[in-house]
Simulated scan of single mutants.
Amino acid sequence: MDNYYNSIALAKKLLLKGTYVTGTLRANRKGNPSEITSKRLARGETVSKYSGGVTVGKWRDKRDVLFISTEFDGEMVQEENRRGESKQKPKAIIMYNKYMSGIDRQDQML
């Protein structure tokens, strides 16, 4: 899900119904853990918090990316880009990009 819709409360409700959520999260949402949103990270660093089946994390690439997932934890995975360069990314971010890139591109074109 995109950050416009996501929140911790919604992720918990959907998890109770058996629906998993993975997506980006807005930093100013009510209920976000302040120890995650206020943490300053260097490039490639990540921090995450798991509570009640919901993982909220922050990863720094070119800019901070705040993510939420009920399906994945804060596990870091090796991924190669188009130029063959290898980079560590959270698995939740990799899966979000895999399934949402076309939708984000369509929204951008509109």
Results as ranks from 00 to 15, higher is better:
residue 21 V to S: 13
residue 21 V to Q: 12
residue 21 V to F: 15
residue 22 T to W: 09
residue 23 G to T: 01
residue 23 G to H: 00
residue 23 G to C: 09
residue 24 T to F: 05
residue 24 T to G: 09
residue 25 L to E: 02
residue 26 R to S: 14
residue 26 R to P: 12
residue 27 A to V: 15
residue 28 N to D: 12
residue 29 R to Y: 02
residue 29 R to N: 09
residue 30 K to D: 14
residue 30 K to V: 12
residue 31 G to L: 08
residue 33 P to L: 11
residue 34 S to F: 14
residue 35 E to C: 14
residue 36 I to W: 11
residue 36 I to S: 06
residue 37 T to N: 01
residue 37 T to E: 08
residue 37 T to W: 05
residue 38 S to R: 14
residue 38 S to A: 13
residue 39 K to L: 11
residue 40 R to F: 05
residue 41 L to M: 11
residue 41 L to S: 08
residue 41 L to D: 09
residue 42 A to L: 12
residue 43 R to Y: 04
residue 43 R to F: 05
residue 43 R to P: 07
residue 43 R to E: 07
residue 44 G to E: 01
residue 44 G to Y: 00
residue 44 G to H: 02
residue 44 G to I: 00
residue 45 E to N: 07
residue 45 E to M: 10
residue 46 T to S: 08
residue 47 V to Y: 11
residue 47 V to R: 10
residue 48 S to M: 01
residue 48 S to A: 12
residue 48 S to W: 06
residue 50 Y to I: 00
residue 50 Y to F: 00
residue 50 Y to Q: 10
residue 51 S to I: 01
residue 51 S to N: 10
residue 52 G to N: 12
residue 52 G to F: 06
residue 52 G to S: 11
residue 52 G to D: 08
residue 53 G to C: 04
residue 53 G to Y: 03
residue 53 G to P: 06
residue 53 G to I: 06
residue 53 G to S: 05
residue 54 V to Q: 02
residue 54 V to P: 04
residue 55 T to K: 02
residue 57 G to Q: 03
residue 57 G to N: 11
residue 57 G to W: 00
residue 59 W to G: 05
residue 60 R to Y: 15
residue 60 R to V: 13
residue 61 D to G: 02
residue 62 K to G: 10
residue 62 K to M: 09
residue 62 K to S: 07
residue 62 K to P: 03
residue 63 R to H: 15
residue 63 R to P: 14
residue 64 D to E: 15
residue 64 D to W: 04
residue 66 L to N: 00
residue 66 L to W: 02
residue 66 L to S: 07
residue 66 L to Q: 10
residue 67 F to D: 09
residue 67 F to N: 07
residue 67 F to G: 07
residue 68 I to W: 15
residue 68 I to N: 09
residue 69 S to C: 05
residue 69 S to Y: 02
residue 70 T to F: 10
residue 70 T to N: 09
residue 70 T to E: 09
residue 71 E to I: 13
residue 71 E to D: 13
residue 71 E to P: 12
residue 72 F to E: 06
residue 72 F to V: 06
residue 72 F to W: 11
residue 73 D to I: 02
residue 73 D to V: 04
residue 74 G to H: 04
residue 75 E to L: 10
residue 75 E to P: 09
residue 76 M to V: 14
residue 76 M to I: 12
residue 77 V to A: 01
residue 77 V to D: 03
residue 77 V to P: 07
residue 78 Q to L: 12
residue 78 Q to P: 04
residue 78 Q to F: 11
residue 78 Q to R: 07
residue 79 E to V: 15
residue 79 E to F: 15
residue 79 E to T: 15
residue 79 E to G: 14
residue 79 E to I: 15
residue 80 E to T: 07
residue 81 N to R: 03
residue 81 N to K: 01
residue 83 R to M: 08
residue 83 R to T: 03
residue 83 R to I: 05
residue 83 R to D: 01
residue 83 R to P: 03
residue 83 R to Q: 05
residue 84 G to H: 08
residue 84 G to P: 03
residue 84 G to N: 02
residue 85 E to A: 08
